[in-house]
Amino acid sequence: RRVTVRKADAGGLGISIKGGRENKMPILISKIFKGLAADQTEALFVGDAILSVNGEDLSSATHDEAVQALKKTGKEVVLEVKYMK
């Protein structure tokens, strides 16, 4: 599913991630910080795999590559996510 997140002037997306190619895992949302941008969408969940950020494929990204992709986003971020059981 596709989720658009609008960041506030102060603060980032409000998520922590884990996983990555070096761990043989997808990039997973490991924490959502209450009240910040990702939480306010009410459409992102701990355990979601982030498949892409603004069209940039993260399916084979390392953890560091995913962190950089998320950091360089502007005010509006489009995440392609899939819930992983």
Rank of each mutant, 00 (worst) to 15 (best):
G35A: 04
S60N: 15
R2L: 12
Q40R: 14
L51E: 08
I32F: 01
S59D: 04
L28F: 15
M84W: 15
I50C: 05
E56T: 14
I50P: 06
L51T: 09
R21V: 11
F45K: 12
V46K: 06
E22A: 05
A66C: 05
A8Q: 14
V78D: 11
G20E: 05
G55A: 04
K71I: 10
A10L: 12
I27N: 04
G11E: 14
G20L: 00
Q40M: 09
A8V: 13
T73Y: 07
T4W: 10
I50K: 04
V78A: 15
A8Y: 08
L51V: 09
D39Q: 06
S16G: 11
S52Q: 07
A8R: 11
F45I: 08
F45W: 09
L13T: 01
S52E: 06
R21I: 12
A66L: 02
K75A: 12
S60Y: 14
M25W: 01
G35I: 00
G14T: 02
I50T: 04
L13P: 02
Q40D: 09
T62R: 06
H63E: 09
Q68W: 08
A10C: 14
P26N: 07
V67F: 06
G19W: 00
V67L: 13
D64S: 13
I27R: 01
I32A: 02
G12C: 10
R2I: 13
R2M: 13
I17N: 02
G20N: 01
I15C: 05
I17H: 04
E22T: 05
S52P: 03
V77W: 06
Y83M: 13
S30A: 12
Q68R: 13
G12R: 09
K7W: 08
A66Q: 04
K71M: 12
L28G: 04
N23V: 12
T4A: 07
V53R: 02
G47D: 10
A66G: 07
N23F: 13
K85H: 09
G47V: 03
M84A: 13
G19A: 02
K71F: 09
A69F: 07
M25I: 03
R6F: 13
G12E: 15
H63T: 12
R1I: 03
G14F: 00
V3L: 03
A66H: 05
I15H: 03
D39L: 03
K34V: 07
A38R: 05
D64V: 09
T41I: 08
K71A: 14
E65M: 08
V3F: 03
G55E: 08
A61F: 05
E80W: 05
S59E: 09
K85M: 13
T4F: 12
E22N: 07
G35N: 09
T73P: 11
G19L: 02
I15A: 02
M84V: 11
Q40Y: 06
M25G: 08
A66T: 03
N54W: 01
V67Y: 10
G14I: 00
V3C: 00
E65R: 06
T41S: 12
A43Y: 06
A66W: 02
I17S: 03
K31S: 09
R21H: 08
H63I: 12
D64R: 12
G74Q: 08
K24A: 10
A8T: 15
L58P: 01
A69G: 01
D9T: 14
A61N: 07
K85G: 15
L70Y: 02
L70K: 01
S59H: 08
D48I: 04
A66M: 03
A10D: 14
T62W: 04
E42A: 13
H63D: 08
K7F: 10
D48K: 01
G74P: 09
A37Q: 05
E42H: 15
N23R: 13
S52I: 02
M84P: 11
E22P: 00
A37R: 05
Y83L: 10
L36K: 13
G74Y: 02
L58I: 14
V53W: 01
R21F: 11
E22M: 04
R2W: 11
S60P: 01
A69N: 03
I15S: 00
G55D: 08
V5T: 03
A61R: 04
T73M: 06
T62V: 01
H63F: 11
E56H: 13
G74M: 06
N54D: 15
G20I: 01
P26A: 01
S30L: 04
V3E: 00
G74L: 04
Q40W: 03
E42L: 05
A69R: 09
G11N: 13
E80M: 08
A38K: 04
T62Y: 07
P26D: 01
D9S: 14
I32E: 04
I32T: 02
A38Y: 10
G35Y: 10
A37K: 07
L70A: 02
T4R: 07
A69L: 13
G11D: 13
M84L: 11
D64A: 15
A37M: 01
K7A: 11
R21D: 02
Q40S: 09
T62P: 05
D64Y: 11
G74T: 10
S59I: 06
D64M: 10
L51M: 11
G35P: 06
T4P: 04
G12S: 11
G11K: 12
M84F: 13
Y83H: 15
K24F: 08
D9Q: 12
S30Q: 09
L70G: 02
R6T: 14
I50V: 07
I27T: 01
K18M: 14
K72A: 14
V81N: 06
V53T: 03
S52Y: 06
R1N: 00
D64P: 07
Q68H: 11
K24G: 14
A38W: 05
M84E: 13
L58S: 05
G74N: 09
L28Q: 11
G14C: 03
M84C: 14
A10N: 13
K31P: 03
A37E: 08
L70F: 11
D9G: 14
F33R: 12
S59P: 02
K7D: 10
E80C: 08
F45M: 14
V81Q: 06
G20S: 01
K71V: 09
I32Q: 03
D48V: 01
V46T: 07
G19M: 06
A8S: 14
L36W: 10
K7L: 14
V77A: 11
A8D: 14
N23D: 10
K82L: 10
K82E: 13
G11L: 13
K71R: 13
I15F: 15
G19Q: 03
G12I: 09
F33M: 12
V3S: 01
A37D: 05
I29G: 03
E65Y: 06
G55H: 08
A61V: 08
V53N: 06
L28E: 08
K18N: 09
K82F: 06
S16Y: 08
T4C: 11
Q68V: 08
E42T: 07
I29R: 04
A8M: 15
G47E: 05
D39A: 10
E56Y: 14
A37V: 07
K31D: 10
R6C: 14
S16A: 15
K24E: 10
D48E: 00
R2N: 08
I27S: 00
I27L: 04
F33W: 15
K82D: 08
V67P: 02
K72L: 09
F33C: 14
L58M: 13
G35T: 07
I17M: 05
A38N: 00
I27H: 05
E42F: 02
R1G: 00
V5A: 05
Q68Y: 07
A38L: 04
S30N: 10
Q40A: 12
E42N: 15
I15P: 00
N54M: 00
K18Y: 12
I15T: 01
E22Y: 02
K24R: 12
V77L: 09
F33E: 15
S59V: 07
E56M: 12
V46S: 05
A69K: 11
D39V: 02
L58R: 03
K82H: 06
S52W: 01
G12W: 07
H63Y: 15
T62K: 07
A66D: 00
F45G: 08
V5E: 01
I17W: 04
D48R: 03
N54I: 00
V77H: 05
A69D: 07
A37I: 05
K82W: 01
A10R: 13
I50H: 04
H63N: 10
L36I: 01
K75P: 14
G74S: 10
K34Y: 04
N54L: 01
K31F: 02
G35W: 00
K24P: 00
A43I: 02
S52A: 11
S30R: 06
N54F: 01
K85L: 15
K75Y: 07
K72M: 11
S16C: 13
N23I: 10
K18R: 13
